[in-house]
Design a protein around this nucleic acid. Structure first.
Length: 803
DNA sequence: GACTCCCGCCAAAGC
DNA sequence: GCTTTGGCGGGAGTC
C-alpha cells in the first residue's frame, strides 16, 4: 500500500523508533537539552539571539501589551488559565506551533524553557482529539473524507501513536474506518446513533446491566477484592453467564473495515471502547465509574487473573477512551464519593431508547428527535458545531468558569449535553459564561411538519435572539419559575448528581435493586425528553395528568427553592423524588410522563404543540401563574400578532422559557407569523415602554436571573413590527443543553466579550423562505450550513425596561 | 498519596 | 524486511 503520508522511514530508523515525529515531540527535558547548534539549524535567523541574558525575557508569542505582565502572572498562577489561553490560540496557529516552539526555545532557556513547554493538560489526548475532530465535519457530505494519519499527526504536531488512540475509539463508534494503511475514512456522526443502538443492544445481550449490578453489589458489600472468594465467584459468573470473547460490534448494513479482530487486536482499544460505551447505554443512571468499567472489562477476559497491574493498565486505557469520548461529548466526567472520590463518567450523548417500542425507528434513538426536524436540528445545527467547536476551544472557559464553583459531582461544564445532532450543537457551542443553560432555550414553531402537528423547536439563546421575542408572553415568565424546562432539568440533574454523589449509578442506594426500582425510572438526562416527548405526545393528550402535575409541581417548587438558594444539588434526593412518587406508581411511564409534563426539551428539538397543551395546562405553579399567566392567557386570546396554528389552548400550552431574554430585533416574515405561536402581550402593552436597546448580553443574563426584572421590565411592542433588524450575535449561537440549564441561574462571572459570529448572524436570517421543516432541511454540506438556515421567525423587537 | 494519562518501547500485524 | 499498528506499563504531572 502506498504510503500516503510519506515522511516515514529513514528518519525513524535513525531515531531508533518507528515514531516519525518523536524528535519533534521530545519531552521538555530533551528539548531543553537541544543544542544550540541544532537550534541554529532550525532557526538560522536567530543566531544573534544566542546571547544569553536578554532574549529570554522576550515574550514568546503574545505581542507585548500593557496587560501582558498581568496575563503572565495569572497564567503562571493558574495552569487552567494558562491552558485556556493556549487553547484559545489552538485553532489559529496549529501549524505554527512547532515553529513557535523552536523559536521560543531559542529565546528561553533552563526553567523558562521548561515553563514554556505546553503543560501536560495541553498535550492531553482529549485536547488532541478536539483538534482532530475540529478538522472534520460532523456530518461529512461526501465520502471523500480521507484521513491520512501521517498528515494529521504532523499537522497536529503529535506522534502518530496518539492519533491511533483517537482513531481507534472513533472507529469503535464507526465514525471512522480504516481504508488502508495509514489511511482512514471519516464518517463523522452519520453512523453514530446506529452504532449506539447496536452497542446498546449488544450491551443488553451481554447482560452488562446485571454485571454492573453485581459489581456494584460487591462494592457495596465491600467484599470485592482481587484475591477473595467473592472475586472468584464473580469471575465465575462472568465467565459462565456470557460469551466473554471480545468482539467488535459491527454496524448492520454497513461495511466498515475495522482492523483485524483477530490476534491481539481482539483486545484493542476500539473493542474496549465499545464495551465501555455499552456500559453507559445499558446502565441507569448512565454513570459508570472507571473502576466498575475496568472490572467488567477485565472480567470479561478472566477475572480470576485479575491483578492490580492489569487493573491499572485497564484504567489507563479507559482514560484514553474517556478522553476521546469526552471530546466527542458523549460522556463527561463526574465523581462518585462513595468510599472516597472515585472517577466516573456520565453519559451525555444521545440516549438510545429501547428498540422494543415498535415505534418509528427514528424514535428509538435520540437522533430521532432531529429526524423530526428534518434538517434543522441535524445537519444545519450540527453544521454549526464544527465552527462552534473551534470557538468553543477559545471560549469554553467562560462556561468553565461558570461551573467552577459547582460541586465536583457536577459534570464538567464544557460538555453541555448530549451529542445528538442537536445536542451536538449545544455541546459544541462556546457557551456564554452566564448562559450556558437550557433556560435560554426558546421555541420556534414549525407548523408544516409531516405529522401535521405544529412543533415547537427549542433554540439556543443566540437563536432566541431572532426567535424568542416574537412571543412576548414567553418573556413574561419569571425566570425562576417559568423555566419549567430548566427547572425540571435541574431536578433531573440533581437526581443524577445525588446518585453520583452517593455512589455511582446503581449503587446510589443501599440496595442495588432499589436503585433499579427508583432511579432507573428517573430521567437520567433532561436531553432525553425531546424524543420521549415526541414519542408520547399523542398518548399524553389522553392522559389525565393533573394529579401528577400537581405532585410534580409541588416538588418542582420545592426543588426550585432549593436550587435558587443553593446551586449545590441537595444531598437528599427525597425532594427530588417527591414528585416521583406518583410516577413510580405507574411504572416506567411515569418518567416519561414527567418528561412530558415538564418538558425538558433540549434546544433544537421539536416538540409537538399538542404536547404542550397538556403539559402546561396544569403545569404552572402558582408562582408561575402569578408571573406569567396573565400574559399567557391573554396570549392565545389575542390573534393580533399572527395566525396560530392550533387551538388557543395550544398556545396557552406553549410553555416557553422566558428567562433568557435578549433584546433582539426579530425579523418576522409573513409566513412565519402564521407559523409562530404568537401570543399577545396585551398585558404588557400598558407597561413602561422605556427601553434599553441592546443591552449587553451579560447584563441581560444577569438581569433576567432576577425575577423582578423579568416580570416588570420586559416589554414588547403591542404591534410587532415586521422589519429587518440586525441581530445581535453571540459565539454560542446554537442550543444549550438542558443539563447546563442550571448554570443559567448562577450569577456567573460576566461573559467575556464575544465576537460576532457570522454564522450566528446568518442563522434564521435568510430571507424568502418559510420556516417550514422542509425549508430547514439540512445542508448536507457541513462547510457553510449556517448560511442556508431558513427558519423564519416573526420579527419583533424586544425591549427591556431600564428598570 | 492518589489520580491522570503522557510517553514511547517494542512486538504483532500488515504490506 | 520494512512499515504500520497498538498493547502495554513506567513514571511524570496534577490534584
Amino acid at each position: 500500500m502506498q504510503q500516503a503520508g510519506g515522511g516515514m522511514g529513514s528518519s525513524d530508523k535513525e531515531n531508533h523508533s518507528s515514531e516519525p515525529y518523536r524528535n519533534v515531540l521530545k519531552t521538555p527535558l530533551k528539548q531543553t537539552a537541544t543544542s544550540h547548534s541544532v537550534l541554529r539549524e532550525i532557526q538560522p535567523d536567530c543566531q544573534h539571539l544566542t546571547t544569553p541574558p536578554k532574549p529570554k525575557k522576550i515574550p514568546p508569542a503574545d505581542p507585548w501589551t500593557p496587560t501582558w505582565n498581568l496575563k503572565m502572572l495569572v497564567s503562571a498562577a493558574s495552569p487552567e488559565i494558562r491552558s485556556r489561553e493556549q487553547r484559545r490560540e489552538l485553532s489559529n496557529n496549529t501549524n505554527e506551533v512547532p515553529q513557535a516552539k523552536h523559536c521560543l526555545q531559542e529565546h528561553l532557556s533552563g526553567d523558562e524553557c521548561e515553563k514554556s513547554q505546553p503543560s501536560r493538560k495541553e498535550k492531553s489526548l482529549g485536547l488532541l482529539c478536539q483538534k482532530f475532530l475540529a478538522r472534520y465535519p460532523d456530518y461529512p457530505s461526501t465520502e471523500n473524507n480521507f484521513i491520512c494519519l501521517d498528515e494529521v499527526a504532523e499537522e497536529l504536531n503529535v506522534e502518530r501513536r496518539r492519533i491511533y488512540d483517537i482513531v481507534n475509539v472513533l472507529e469503535s463508534l464507526h465514525m471512522v474506518s480504516r481504508l488502508a494503511k495509514n489511511r482512514y475514512v471519516w464518517y463523522g456522526r452519520h453512523n453514530l446513533f446506529k452504532t449506539l443502538q447496536a452497542l446498546k443492544k449488544a450491551g443488553e445481550e451481554n447482560k452488562y446491566t446485571r454485571q454492573i449490578q453485581m459489581i456494584k453489589k460487591r462494592e457495596y458489600e465491600n467484599e470485592f477484592d482481587f484475591d477473595g472468594e467473592r472475586n472468584k465467584e464473580t469471575a465465575r459468573y462472568f465467565n459462565s453467564s456470557e460469551p466473554s470473547e471480545m468482539s467488535f460490534v459491527e454496524l448492520p448494513g454497513t461495511e466498515f473495515h475495522p482492523a483485524s479482530v483477530n490476534g491481539r487486536k481482539v483486545t484493542s482499544l476500539r473493542v474496549m471502547s465499545q464495551k465501555f460505551v455499552m456500559l453507559f447505554l445499558v446502565s441507569t443512571p448512565q454513570v459508570v465509574s472507571l473502576e466498575v468499567a475496568a472490572k467488567i472489562l477485565i472480567g470479561e477476559d478472566r477475572l480470576e487473573d485479575l491483578d492490580k497491574s492489569k487493573f491499572k493498565t485497564k484504567i489507563r486505557r479507559l482514560y484514553d477512551i474517556t478522553n476521546v469520548l469526552s471530546s466527542l461529548e458523549l460522556i463527561k466526567k463526574v465523581h462518585v464519593t462513595k468510599r472516597g472520590r472515585k472517577p466516573a463518567f456520565k453519559w451525555t450523548g444521545p440516549e438510545v431508547l429501547p428498540d422494543t417500542r415498535g415505534t418509528d425507528h427514528h424514535l428509538s434513538a435520540f437522533p430521532s428527535k432531529t429526524a423530526h426536524v428534518p434538517a434543522i436540528a441535524t445537519h444545519q445545527l450540527e453544521g454549526q458545531s464544527k465552527k462552534a467547536r473551534v470557538l468553543k476551544m477559545k471560549l469554553s472557559q467562560s462556561a468553565l468558569e461558570c461551573t467552577l464553583s459547582s460541586p465536583e459531582v457536577v459534570p464538567k461544564p464544557e460538555a453541555p449535553l448530549s451529542t445528538g445532532p442537536t445536542e451536538q450543537v449545544a455541546i459544541t457551542q462556546p457557551l456564554g459564561a452566564c448562559s450556558p443553560s437550557h433556560s435560554a432555550v426558546s421555541p420556534v414553531i414549525l407548523p408544516h411538519t409531516p405529522s401535521g402537528v405544529p412543533y415547537a423547536m427549542y433554540l439556543h439563546p443566540s437563536q432566541t435572539h431572532t426567535v424568542t421575542t416574537y412571543s412576548p408572553g414567553f418573556m413574561l415568565q419569571p425566570l425562576s419559575c417559568a423555566n419549567v424546562t430548566g427547572i425540571k432539568s435541574i431536578n433531573s440533574k440533581i437526581l443524577n448528581e445525588v446518585t453520583t454523589e452517593e455512589g455511582d449509578s446503581q449503587t446510589a442506594t443501599d440496595d442495588p435493586t432499589k436503585s433499579l426500582t427508583t432511579q432507573e425510572r428517573l430521567p437520567t438526562k433532561s436531553e432525553t425528553s425531546p424524543q420521549r416527548g415526541l414519542k408520547r405526545s399523542h398518548a399524553l393528550q389522553e392522559n389525565n395528568l393533573v394529579k401528577r402535575f400537581r405532585s410534580d409541581e409541588k416538588s418542582l417548587d420545592t426543588s426550585l427553592g432549593e436550587c435558587s438558594k443553593n446551586e449545590t444539588p441537595p444531598s437528599n434526593s427525597s425532594q427530588m423524588n417527591h414528585g416521583m412518587d406518583n410516577f413510580q406508581e405507574e411504572g416506567q411511564n411515569t418518567t416519561e410522563t414527567l418528561y412530558q409534563n415538564k418538558t425538558f426539551f433540549p434546544s433544537g428539538c421539536l416538540i409537538p404543540l399538542t404536547h404542550y397543551i397538556h403539559s402546561n395546562k396544569e403545569g404552572f405553579s402558582n408562582k408561575e401563574k402569578d408571573g406569567i399567566c396573565s400574559s399567557q392567557r391573554t396570549t392565545h386570546s389575542s390573534p393580533v400578532t399572527g395566525i396560530i396554528p392550533g387551538t388557543t389552548s395550544e398556545l396557552k400550552a406553549v410553555n416557553i422559557p422566558a428567562f433568557h431574554i435578549t433584546p433582539l430585533n426579530i425579523m418576522l416574515s409573513p409566513t412565519s407569523i402564521g407559523a409562530a405561536p404568537v401570543v399577545s402581550n396585551s398585558c404588557l402593552n400598558s407597561s413602561n415602554t422605556s427601553s434599553v436597546q441592546n443591552p449587553s448580553p451579560s447584563f441581560l443574563n444577569f438581569a433576567l436571573q432576577h425575577i423582578g426584572l423579568l416580570a416588570a421590565g420586559v416589554q414588547v411592542p403591542s404591534n410587532p413590527v415586521l422589519q429587518h433588524m440586525p441581530v445581535p450575535s453571540q459565539p454560542e449561537s446554537v442550543s444549550h443543553s438542558s443539563e447546563n440549564m442550571h448554570l443559567q441561574e448562577k450569577p456567573c462571572v460576566p461573559r467575556e466579550p464575544q465576537e460576532p459570529q457570522a454564522a450566528t448572524e446568518n442563522f434564521f436570517r435568510t430571507p424568502g423562505r418559510p420556516n417550514t421543516a422542509s425549508s430547514l432541511s439540512a445542508n448536507s454540506n457541513g462547510t457553510d450550513r449556517m448560511s442556508q438556515r431558513t427558519l423564519y421567525i416573526p420579527q419583533q423587537k424586544l425591549e427591556v425596561s431600564k428598570d
